[in-house]
Amino acid sequence: MHLPFPLTTYRARLADVQRRMRDQQLDAMLISIPDAIYWLTGVDSVGYLWPQVLIIPARDGEQPIYVTRTTEEPGVDACSWLEERYFYDISEEDPVDAIIGTMRRYGVDTGRIGIEDDAFTMLPSTARRIREAFPAVEFTDCSYIVPAARLIKTDAELAYQRQAAEIADYAMERVFDAIRPGVSEVQLAGIAAAALGEAGGEHAAIPPMVVSGERSALVHCMASRRTLSRGDVVCIELAGVVNRYHAVFMRTAVIGEPSRRVADVSNTLVAAHRAAIEAAAPGNPVHLPEDAATAILTPADLTKNRCHRIGYSLGVAYPPGWLEPMTMVKGDPHVFAPGMSFTVEPNLHLPEEGFGIKLGETVECTPDGARTMSRLPHELRVV
């Protein structure tokens, strides 16, 4: 059995989650999101295409029950501490019937039960069938109980993220080294992926993204076969991963001397980015980094070119995404606290001008203020 943390860590996590469940007057809950299951149990698999649930009783000391397909049994044995498991054979048993039957066998069929309303792995049809099977149960949303428990990272968790950031830095440098006219975006994305693996990184929830020239304004597009030319702006986004803990990293390069406009926009973005990091201090509401960046971007008439929220909590992740629920926008009730880790990324896209600029990284909140996990400069890289 391989686990990235001692068994005592997983027991403490389970006890904390069960306490949170009791605070919300739950008798049990069903969790299907892979990052939550991994965080609680160590199960490391991308086999969540088929229905799976971790059934968690709320009573202190009771063990969770994992329901998944038979294909996953060797991985569950190798990667987790779970003792109560049920494996269904998809050629013989309906997956949702397997979940319902397991709930009945373990007596998870009365009272108030949490089910995820906000989970891509809990299909509406699956949730509907579970609800219909237990008409006397009061079902309620439990989507954010485990994410709330994960928001403040331990020193050990942050150490994995810092290692992931070192891997991301290494990969970014290898991409910068390879940027030149005639190289394609897909080649650069491949170089990024190879460098991440070479440095010890695991597969990321989102593969490396590379866009160039007029495509640099396309924030979430994947790499194309477009080849680079002199004068091109090149945006790169990638993530280092250690024990599923992600460190996201974004930088922009230009081939040859940048135009005055590209240089001015980049310099303004750097100032906004640094102001946002400084605003992520303990006790501050999480929308303050957005406010700090906006105060710098607005006089330059660049606020309209902001692509999305300035950041979000980050930690364990699986495809298709790496966002945790805390988002740094007005209306989010969280405040920064030591142990939080999150992205800061005030990216800009200017499609009408034919370019965009990405600048972002993973940041941790410490008792002394926010600190970036990356060592690379923020400025536009000229190659």
Rank of each mutant, 00 (worst) to 15 (best):
E116T: 00
P325D: 11
A204H: 15
E345M: 08
S374D: 05
Y106T: 08
P34D: 12
V211Q: 12
R225A: 14
E257D: 14
A98N: 05
T71A: 01
L49M: 12
D27P: 02
S216T: 13
D368V: 04
I357M: 06
W322V: 01
L14S: 05
G101Q: 10
R226I: 02
P325C: 11
V335K: 15
R381D: 00
L40E: 08
L49C: 07
V137P: 11
V146N: 04
C235M: 07
E214Y: 07
I113P: 11
A127W: 10
V363Y: 00
R13H: 14
E157H: 07
S80V: 03
R128I: 04
S216K: 10
V146Q: 03
R85E: 03
S212L: 13
G75F: 05
A276Y: 03
D89A: 09
G107A: 06
E198R: 12
Q25M: 04
Y106G: 06
V46I: 13
R309H: 11
H287A: 12
R112A: 04
T70D: 08
A133D: 04
F342V: 05
G356V: 11
P64A: 05
L30M: 11
A133H: 03
A192L: 01
C221L: 11
L218G: 04
V175G: 01
G201L: 01
I236S: 13
T140L: 09
P135S: 09
T362L: 04
P377N: 07
D27N: 15
L228V: 05
T8Q: 14
I255L: 15
W322C: 02
T71K: 03
A275W: 05
T327E: 12
F336L: 05
V76E: 02
A337C: 02
Y170T: 11
R105Y: 09
G321E: 14
G182Y: 01
H203Y: 06
A133R: 04
D155N: 09
I236W: 11
S313H: 08
G283V: 08
P64Q: 04
M222N: 06
H220V: 05
A149H: 11
M29T: 03
S341A: 15
D97L: 05
L269M: 15
Y170V: 10
P57H: 09
M1Y: 07
P208S: 01
S212R: 14
G360S: 02
V383D: 10
R112G: 03
A275V: 09
I152T: 11
I33S: 15
R371K: 13
Q161T: 13
F342K: 13
E345I: 06
Y10R: 12
H2N: 10
P346Q: 07
Y48K: 07
E361D: 15
D16W: 03
